[in-house]
Design a protein around this nucleic acid. Structure first.
Lengths: 154, 154
DNA sequence: ATGGTTATGGAACGAACAGTCAAATAAAGA
DNA sequence: TCTTTATTTGACTGTTCGTTCCATAACCAT
């Protein structure tokens, strides 16, 4: 990146601290992007679809979601990494849950759905999509998987 | 493991070859376990539920599925690793697809479901569960997610 | 200019690690 | 028992990597 070693160490301290800041930034950004997708859509369900599809469309081959990567690599071993992952997942699931509740209020999503469970499920689907994309799944594969997942909310 | 360095190099050649053999073995075993769960259940749908739940129950904290780990770490960069992942995913999805077709024949799964799409979706769900488990999700979280996923097939 | 903070580049250190070599030891066969 | 073969062990090499030290240059206010 054309940045001197020493500048980097002076600014961030060490590699771990830099990683944490990058991860934090990335997670914050990701949640924001999803929130934006949810809000700019015509309806709650359409928003969830847009969030999932928008992600599937934006995938490029050789990148791995930093959040999922951090979970896979460190699990719960690194407490600071885990804390970032946990709080990020929590806010993401809160956003999804609120959207799903709105969908229920509008009658778009059946009343027997528990928003928290559904939100966690959407999160799980998201993770599955990301890993499958990294594993080489085509955009069509991802889109079809999104459609299957959305059946659960209908 | 109490194994001498040299014995290991003599037997496997190098670290990469050892990794490939371990991954191969692990994937083969995993697919076998899922196939067994599917076949020993009372019905196709119950089999899928048993496979997902059985996995969720068997999770222990600090382990990461080697297959998912290999995808996250290497993506498509390592052709040999990718080939193992691809063939493993293919056979897993074939097994799921066959089970779903049986469910359709029995009227347990609605006819508009495409077995291939549904199988891929189940695979995605599996991946999502594994990563969430590694991220610290409780067994209850996983169970609830399985129940949500199964709604898609009903 | 002068002094002080701040960024950059190069050399180097200590640790970890993949892999090799050769000697020592155990196992197996005649 | 002796020889051949396989297995284990320990020391060693070359490399990568995170990190620090130090010397140097750029910038900014006085």
């Amino acid at each position: 990146m054309g940045i001197g070693r020493q500048s980097l160490y002076d600014t961030f301290g060490d590699k771990h601290a830099l990683y944490l800041e990058a991860l934090q930034h990335y997670c914050f950004d990701s949640v924001g992007q999803i929130a934006a997708a949810l809000q700019s859509a015509g309806s709650p369900l359409a928003g969830i679809e847009a969030a999932l599809l928008g992600f599937a469309a934006r995938i490029q081959d050789d990148t791995m979601c930093l959040g999922v990567g951090s979970i896979c690599e460190f699990g719960r071993r690194d407490r600071e990494v885990a804390a970032i992952g946990k709080s990020s997942a929590a806010s993401l699931q809160n956003i999804f849950a609120a959207t799903i509740q709105r969908g229920k209020d509008l009658g778009e999503i059946p009343p027997e759905i528990d928003p928290k469970d559904a939100a966690r499920f959407i999160n799980a689907t998201f993770i599955g999509l990301k890993v499958m994309a990294r594993g080489g799944a085509t955009h069509d594969d991802l889109r079809a998987t999104v459609q299957m997942a959305l059946r659960c909310l209908g």
